[in-house]
Deep mutational scan, measured.
Amino acid sequence: MTSCHIAEEHIQKVAIFGGTHGNELTGVFLVKHWLENGAEIQRTGLEVKPFITNPRAVKKCTRYIDCDLNRIFDLENLGKKMSEDLPYEVRRAQEINHLFGPKDSEDSYDIIFDLHNTTSNMGCTLILEDSRNNFLIQMFHYIKTSLAPLPCYVYLIEHPSLKYATTRSIAKYPVGIEVGPQPQGVLRADILDQMRKMIKHALDFIHHFNEGKEFPPCAIEVYKIIEKVDYPRDENGEIAAIIHPNLQDQDWKPLHPGDPMFLTLDGKTIPLGGDCTVYPVFVNEAAYYEKKEAFAKTTKLTLNAKSIRCCLH
């Protein structure tokens, strides 16, 4: 018999989150649709729960009410004593943790798909938090293969000092899905179709896995975050240069030392320094102006996964 890495157990509980950011409308629209008619997301033997994560922000069509829901799922915020004085999103995070967690427990949901849009030209993107997770690498390989020839990129946010504390991190297997470009507060049919297909293929993978299909060893190309880059700023902290036209919409493309990065209003080009080629992502993302992030630098690498098969009882 072929030796293989056996994944822990079959997958039982899956959640699909929309509206973690209330103005990213593809996930909101799909989740609302699936709450009314969820036939397309159901798979035999699998509990799939669509869920609106930040209903107040969705109602106002804004990213958040008090603070970013997708950055506060750490033990400090989840452990705060519940009171009306807490920011709305912290209270909501505790409610979500109660419903789908608790985080880092045996009772937490197996998989959470968190649906997002970006204003950046990132196409279909899967966000991975753990480079050693054979199950998710296999799932992402399946999704990428199923979507081809449509490109699907994998963004690895594993980093020693950049801690995200994402909404989906309460699950055993957290999956971020990011599709763009799409303006905030807008629905685009092409973007919706791409996100819908990503979810379909992900659920198909889980179904095949649960039925005992063995997935042979595989490898995927990923883009691992190195650092986030702020806009150049003046002495008052105001933005002093904008994304250069040569960099705009060039997510995932190589940016070499000396290539144009920013452009000042008086026409001066600010190039990339250093001696390493990087791959920019979230270029000129609207939501990241407040976070002082013009783009993120990534490096390209390959992740390998062992063969996996479900432990059938």
Rank of each mutant, 00 (worst) to 15 (best):
K81E: 14
L301F: 10
A171H: 01
H98W: 11
E211F: 07
L247V: 08
K13N: 10
K80G: 13
E211I: 09
Y88T: 07
G27S: 09
R63Y: 08
T167G: 11
F113G: 03
H141R: 06
P181F: 06
K60N: 12
K292M: 09
P271E: 10
E76T: 12
L126P: 06
R196Y: 03
G101T: 06
G237P: 04
C124N: 08
H208S: 14
R71Q: 14
A93T: 08
K253N: 08
I206E: 01
Q42L: 08
L272M: 11
L78V: 12
L263R: 07
N246C: 09
H98V: 13
A148C: 08
D114F: 00
N133K: 00
A286P: 10
E221V: 00
D107H: 13
D259A: 07
P280Q: 04
I11L: 08
L126R: 04
S120W: 02
D230Y: 13
E214T: 10
C61R: 14
G185W: 06
Q184P: 12
L136M: 08
D251H: 01
L162N: 15
L265K: 12
Y155V: 15
G237K: 04
K32A: 06
S131A: 13
V229A: 06
V278P: 05
P55K: 11
Q94R: 12
K59S: 13
D190V: 07
N304S: 13
D249Y: 05
T125N: 03
E211G: 12
E106N: 13
E238M: 08
H244Y: 04
N54H: 08
I52L: 14
L25E: 05
I137D: 03
Y153N: 15
A7Q: 14
G237Y: 00
N23E: 04
L156W: 09
L75F: 13
A287V: 10
T264R: 08
K297N: 07
D74P: 11
C152G: 03
V179E: 03
P271N: 12
E178S: 15
E106S: 13
A39S: 13
V222D: 05
G123A: 05
G212H: 06
G273D: 15
F295D: 04
R56V: 12
H159W: 06
G27C: 05
V175H: 05
G212I: 01
Y231V: 00
E227A: 07
G237I: 05
Q194W: 12
Y64E: 08
Y153F: 11
N117S: 14
N134Q: 13
I11F: 06
L301V: 14
A219C: 12
E285S: 14
I239C: 08
F282L: 09
T299P: 04
T277C: 08
T118L: 07
K306L: 09
A202W: 05
M122G: 01
V154F: 02
V281R: 03
H256I: 07
A165S: 14
Y231G: 06
K144N: 01
Q94F: 11
D259G: 01
E106A: 14
G176K: 15
P151M: 06
S169H: 09
I199H: 03
G45V: 00
F205Q: 04
K13T: 06
V154R: 04
I199C: 07
E8N: 14
N121Q: 02
E214C: 09
F17Q: 03
S83I: 13
E290W: 08
E129D: 14
F29H: 15
V154E: 05
I226W: 08
L263P: 03
Y142F: 07
S83Y: 11
M82L: 14
T302R: 09
V278I: 12
K163E: 14
C4V: 12
C276K: 15
H208Y: 13
I96R: 06
P55I: 09
I191H: 01
P257G: 02
L30M: 07
K197Q: 13
L156F: 08
A93K: 10
G274T: 00
S120Q: 02
Y155N: 06
K213S: 08
V154L: 00
T269I: 12
P151R: 07
A171W: 02
A93N: 07
E76N: 12
G22E: 10
H207R: 11
D107M: 12
S3Y: 09
L303E: 06
D130A: 00
K80N: 13
C276R: 14
E8R: 14
I112A: 11
K292C: 09
V283G: 03
M122F: 03
T264H: 06
L25K: 15
Y288I: 11
I206P: 00
L150S: 10
V58D: 02
L35G: 08
K253I: 07
V281P: 05
K49T: 14
F51H: 09
A287M: 11
T145N: 13
N134K: 02
C61Y: 10
T302L: 10
D234E: 07
L265Y: 14
S105Y: 10
H98I: 12
V229F: 01
K49M: 11
N236M: 09
V90I: 14
A287C: 13
D204P: 05
F282C: 10
Q138E: 02
S120N: 05
K306G: 14
R71G: 14
L203Y: 04
D74C: 11
G185E: 05
C218G: 04
G176R: 15
H5T: 14
K172I: 02
L312K: 13
N77H: 14
S108G: 13
S307M: 09
Y289W: 12
K292T: 09
A15P: 06
G176D: 01
S120L: 06
R92P: 06
Y153M: 11
C124G: 05
L128S: 04
D104Q: 12
R233E: 07
H313P: 15
H21P: 04
L255P: 06
K253T: 07
C124K: 02
R92M: 12
Y173V: 09
E89F: 03
G176L: 12
F215E: 03
T62I: 12
S161D: 15
T299W: 07
I72C: 15
D259M: 08
M261G: 02
P232Y: 01
T277Y: 03
H244C: 00
L247S: 06
H10E: 15
I111A: 01
D85A: 14
I206A: 06
K59T: 12
L203M: 09
C61W: 08
G38T: 11
L69R: 06
H116N: 07
F29N: 14
I137G: 01
L162A: 15
Y173L: 13
A93Q: 10
N133W: 01
K144M: 15
Y173P: 06
N37D: 13
G123P: 03
N70F: 06
D259L: 03
H141D: 01
P254M: 02
G38N: 14
K163N: 13
F135P: 04
G79C: 14
H256K: 12
E84N: 14
V48F: 05
N77L: 12
T20R: 01
T125P: 03
A286W: 07
I52W: 03
T118E: 01
Y88V: 08
L303G: 06
Y155Q: 14
L69N: 06
K253E: 08
N121K: 07
C218V: 10
P149H: 02
M122I: 15
D107V: 10
E290K: 11
W34L: 02
M198A: 14
K300I: 08
G27Q: 00
S307H: 08
I96N: 06
I225P: 13
P151G: 01
I220Q: 04
I239Q: 09
F100N: 03
L99S: 10
C276S: 14
N304F: 14
P151E: 11
Y64D: 06
D259Y: 00
R71T: 14
I170K: 09
R91L: 14
T264Q: 08
K32T: 08
A57Y: 02
I170T: 08
Q184C: 11
L78K: 10
G45C: 03
T44C: 10
P245M: 04
G267Q: 07
A93M: 12
H208F: 13
I96D: 07
F73G: 12
F100M: 07
Y223K: 06
F135S: 02
F113P: 03
F205W: 01
T2Q: 14
H33I: 00
R56A: 14
A148R: 09
I170H: 06
A294S: 01
F295W: 00
T2R: 14
E106R: 13
D104C: 12
E238G: 09
E227Q: 07
E106L: 13
G212P: 02
N246T: 11
P87W: 08
V281N: 00
I226S: 08
N121T: 05
T166E: 11
Y155K: 11
D130T: 02
F100S: 04
V283M: 05
V48E: 04
P183A: 12
I143E: 01
A148P: 01
E238W: 00
E95S: 10
R63F: 02
D230L: 11
C61V: 13
N210V: 07
K13L: 00
D68M: 03
Y173T: 08
